[in-house]
Simulated scan of single mutants.
Amino acid sequence: MSLLRPDDLIRSVSDITPEFLAARGLRGLLLDLDNTLVPYHSYDDFPRSARWVEEISGSGIRLALLSNATVKRAGEWRSRLALEGVGMAGKPYPASFRRAAAALGLPAYQVGMVGDQLFTDVLGGNLAGLHTILVHPLVDNALPHTRLARMLERRVLARYGHAWGPDIWQPGGPEDPHEP
């Protein structure tokens, strides 16, 4: 079960600052796309994430996209966000995480994996020896397999003492950190 335990649990990528990363010894980040940086299946501009990517990369942190989205979708967002990286990465298989970390020119212990799913982002990142950062998903995806995964994620997180789910925080609420 420890492979499913994120090193950090935060609400939004915007909570990740250069100071946050320095305190953890991180010099690079691998970033999930859907429900981490942009809403699932959206091609609409998401200025909050674009500003965050610009600020973090401007501070000298190396960034790359590591997504299971289609090559076309990942390529579109890589271009828009000025990121290196890949789509159809095959997460949670650790080889893709190791290749992406190596492409940043950093050892695994200096790289964080940021994503919204325990069974892909956190599991794969932990298997590859990365620092894992779980963010709350931007939108509630209604696909049946995603609903099931989210229920299982809440149970796993509860085992670690985290009460984090739709009953705790609602996207679009008055303090929604994901609003553009």
Results as ranks from 00 to 15, higher is better:
97 F>M: 06
108 A>L: 05
136 H>K: 15
123 L>V: 10
123 L>Q: 13
99 R>N: 12
115 G>K: 05
116 D>T: 12
111 V>Y: 03
98 R>E: 13
99 R>L: 05
114 V>M: 12
131 H>P: 10
140 D>E: 15
104 L>E: 04
112 G>M: 02
126 N>A: 13
133 I>R: 00
121 D>V: 07
143 L>W: 12
103 A>M: 03
105 G>H: 02
128 A>H: 12
138 L>P: 10
131 H>M: 07
132 T>R: 02
132 T>Y: 03
117 Q>Y: 09
145 H>W: 05
105 G>C: 13
94 P>V: 01
124 G>E: 01
123 L>T: 13
115 G>Q: 11
101 A>V: 04
124 G>V: 11
143 L>V: 11
137 P>F: 07
98 R>S: 09
119 F>K: 12
135 V>E: 13
139 V>G: 02
106 L>K: 01
143 L>H: 06
118 L>V: 07
131 H>S: 08
108 A>N: 13
106 L>S: 04
96 S>G: 03
115 G>W: 06
142 A>G: 08
100 A>F: 02
96 S>M: 00
118 L>E: 10
115 G>Y: 07
128 A>E: 03
109 Y>I: 01
111 V>F: 01
100 A>T: 01
97 F>T: 11
95 A>D: 15
132 T>S: 07
146 T>H: 11
138 L>F: 13
107 P>L: 07
138 L>K: 00
144 P>E: 03
100 A>S: 03
133 I>L: 00
113 M>P: 02
109 Y>F: 14
126 N>G: 12
127 L>D: 06
129 G>M: 09
146 T>N: 06
130 L>D: 02
106 L>W: 14
146 T>M: 15
101 A>E: 13
127 L>Y: 11
129 G>E: 11
114 V>R: 00
112 G>C: 01
114 V>E: 09
127 L>N: 06
102 A>M: 06
99 R>D: 08
101 A>P: 13
102 A>L: 01
135 V>T: 05
117 Q>F: 06
137 P>N: 14
131 H>C: 11
115 G>R: 03
103 A>W: 12
133 I>H: 01
146 T>S: 13
125 G>D: 07
117 Q>K: 03
104 L>G: 09
102 A>P: 00
129 G>W: 08
140 D>L: 08
134 L>Y: 03
105 G>K: 08
